[in-house]
Design a protein around this nucleic acid. Structure first.
Lengths: 212, 212
DNA sequence: AGCTTAATTAAGTAAACGTTTAATTTGAGT
DNA sequence: ACTCAAATTAAACGTTTACTTAATTAAGCT
């Protein structure tokens, strides 16, 4: 029995590496880059600080690796929306609905992006792969807009980046600013009771804008 | 000549205090709470570290004071929009347009709020005054919605918090996420050439949603 | 079996950093 | 002029923290 599912090995470099990445995602997204502690990352995944430097070289490079991995897994879920099979309005509905759900389901990604903006995206700038991944989003939005303008269901003039901003802003904001909003308005914006109303508002406002 | 405008005094507690607050706003909004350095704050306003502790007690209390001041000055600009003098649709136009401009003009406030969300708004929670200030925003939106529903220009069913979210999300996001967006799409979302289009899109999407 | 290198452990180092101790100076009231 | 508290200066203190040095162990290869 050659046993593909790992028995308790004393050495497993890949598992160690991934364990560090998992632990680092939690630590960085909870505390930010400067707030994160290398000791805490090592402790959480039951390895030693030395291993972090063995595999990643420095705290900042580890942070960059975490950021890359988070972007990659976020975009991976976006590939098979099959927007081309839907009528333009339905494609926008699916696109916006998916963005809404996916941001809510991945608050650590959202926090990481907020953190990276505090650092003026200087680590993202050193990850050329990320840029490639994200640009495809604009292309698929543009294709939907073109189809919608061709069949008359959308106005002319909206750019793909504008529409992406309009959709993503709302999805991102309600997750990223959950706590200040909750403190100020004494109401958690992610309260399940508010979810359907917010989701419908997003979809409707985008569609009505494109139609107008 | 009793001289109200301060001559170069050797002692000026109020100026020292305000200088620390100004310097701390820059340091905290640039680097976050854990990234900010007490030494750097003192150096920028030409005082000593001891003064920070003399007036504010700790780094965290200073941060809280900076946050309070930023919220206060942000909301102060919102009082005299005179929405009640405008037709409902025009009131929304002015409200959204003002939010758009004001967020763009105050990136440090936006960054500070992002930072505070990383800390789960635990400092905001200790500033009861802030909550009071912000709740008035909802009331003024609600008044506009009520008038719009009464005269038939708006649909029924939208809540003030939803509308506030829809407007603020876009205004906040394009400033807060300026750097990651710029890196990913190779286009600064605050590029002046894009401004008019984005501003019009925000206003239009909100209005069309309320009308639909 | 033995060699070699990759992986892991344990303990340390030097600098950064928030905070404090303590001494000094300025100015307002008397 | 003197007093006293408030404001300011200067220098440390002790801890935290990112990162290293160095020794040890496990596993793949021949």
């Amino acid at each position: 029995m050659p046993d593909g599912s790992a028995p308790p090995r004393r050495r497993d470099p890949e598992a160690t590496r991934l364990g560090i990445l998992d632990s680092a995602l939690v630590e960085f997204s909870d505390n930010g880059l400067s707030g994160a502690r290398v000791d805490a990352i090592a402790a959480r995944t039951q390895t030693t600080v030395r291993m972090i430097y063995y595999y990643f070289g420095s705290k900042e490079e580890l942070y960059r690796a975490v950021l890359e991995r988070a972007y990659a897994s976020m975009r991976a879920a976006e590939v098979d929306l099959r927007l081309q099979d839907l009528a333009p309005a339905d494609a926008i509905r699916r696109l916006a609905g998916h963005a809404f759900d996916h941001h809510e389901a991945n608050p650590r990604f959202v926090r990481l992006v907020s953190i990276e903006n505090i650092h003026k995206a200087e680590h993202l700038a050193r990850s050329p792969e990320i840029e490639v991944m994200n640009r495809t989003v604009l292309a698929s939005i543009q294709a939907v807009l073109d189809r919608g303008q061709a069949d008359g269901s959308f106005q002319a003039g909206a750019t793909a980046m504008e529409v992406h901003l309009l959709i993503t802003a709302f999805c991102f904001f309600r997750v990223a600013n959950r706590y200040t909003l909750g403190a100020v308005f004494r109401q958690d914006p992610l309260d399940p009771a508010l979810r359907a109303g917010q989701r419908a508002m997003l979809v409707r406002s985008v569609l009505e804008y494109l139609r107008s």
